[in-house]
Design a protein around this nucleic acid. Sequence first.
DNA 1: CCATCTTTGTGCACGCGTTCACAAAGACAT
DNA 2: ATGTCTTTGTGAACGCGTGCACAAAGATGG
Lengths: 255, 255
Amino acid sequence: MATGRTHRPATRSRGIPEATVARLPLYLRALTALSERSVPTVSSEELAAAAGVNSAKLRKDFSYLGSYGTRGVGYDVEYLVYQISRELGLTQDWPVVIVGIGNLGAALANYGGFASRGFRVAALIDADAGMAGKPVAGIPVQHTDELEKIIQDDGVSIGVIATPAGAAQQVCDRLVAAGVTSILNFAPTVLNVPEGVDVRKVDLSIELQILAFHEQRKAGEEAAADTVVPPVAARKQPHSTDQGPDGDVPAVMQA
Amino acid sequence: MATGRTHRPATRSRGIPEATVARLPLYLRALTALSERSVPTVSSEELAAAAGVNSAKLRKDFSYLGSYGTRGVGYDVEYLVYQISRELGLTQDWPVVIVGIGNLGAALANYGGFASRGFRVAALIDADAGMAGKPVAGIPVQHTDELEKIIQDDGVSIGVIATPAGAAQQVCDRLVAAGVTSILNFAPTVLNVPEGVDVRKVDLSIELQILAFHEQRKAGEEAAADTVVPPVAARKQPHSTDQGPDGDVPAVMQA
DNA sequence: CCATCTTTGTGCACGCGTTCACAAAGACAT
DNA sequence: ATGTCTTTGTGAACGCGTGCACAAAGATGG
């Protein structure tokens, strides 16, 4: 295998555009679905539709990985699944610790999408001593005191913070000090991390506020339009948003 | 920009760049914290640091809202809180329905960030008849059959989908048909919606995969560097990513 | 073996977003 | 009032991401 790996255009120094990296998981999901239906090949047009993106964008994205398609035919599903998985680093096992086992932490622990890809929940950690030993998603919760030991013993490099905002920075510091270099933060706080550590932020409240902004704008435009265009027709076009023309929107930002 | 801004080039005279809109909630949070500490004014530099962004960016962002600062002094905290809140549409009440009350749905229902801003959980909806009436976060869960009635009675325009992937599209269709025009989707699926409906997607699995990609890259570069540069110095600069230079990365995309 | 048809891969242009750098504006002291 | 000092607001340059449009590549059929 790895035949197409002949020329390695820019795999390392040049790097893949961040926007492309963010879409690879999307493609991978669509491809996995096709794979399960035993579809052998897929065209950029079809795959793009399934992933909700523009086909030209998809082709360009794939071009960064190399030339894995066959003109006149399309892409080999299985091969592409493998290539993207490898590119994303999913062919190896990533132990992950989740800190803060409240409602959200439990939800994350139970989330199937973890194990399905290369991720494995190495430990669930909570500051509440009363939770210690209690199993969540089949994994016993451990106390915060064990954090450093767990991370070092299991070689954990990815941590998920699902604590209240007040505890997030402190937990983050400990994770980083213990060796974690990638953090997924669900707490509504800006985390301060040293250079070399990646932080991605998922913020519920922010997402809703962005929706509210657009919702307000739609209401305003509709009202303005109603005073001019009474007919029912042409009522739902301000702003659009379906995936046809597609629109990626930065929503979660590095913090 | 965001959403498929197919036509209508400039989002009306009142066009605030999408990237700016996405940061406003960040500023608002930092400002709220300052407000609670009774800080009267704040400079762009200070506020930018608190929000984890570049100060020039922040000033430009605010310039889209108008000139709310005083040169030589900074910005009036209270005034800015109000202006941003108004711009985001948070001065009005937004009833929200959450569909799919599993672990995640429950976590969302309990999330304090909802009520704190202009959002109000109008209803919790689940397909499991056994859950009907059971209170979650003090709100009784209602059966899916009630969905349309609830949305219309309460004038709900924002819906949150926290169902399994398989049910998401169906739920989405019903929400839209009932009048919802903004959807926050937690299910790992590309939602198909008619024009005029906004969809924002939060995908756990995708976030982790992006982290894995960077993690892999860091490991690769480190290994490569070790074979060439033994010294300990200059070891943690591949990619960086802390908030100093700041790096926003599209992670959640419209679907 | 040639013609035709399909689909990829990409050069190019365009527009958005970020950042720099500085003039303008106001506060404050004298 | 005048000068100095601070901080905003923004013009301009630059880089990245997107999408168009097309040539190249390969399949397919005669």
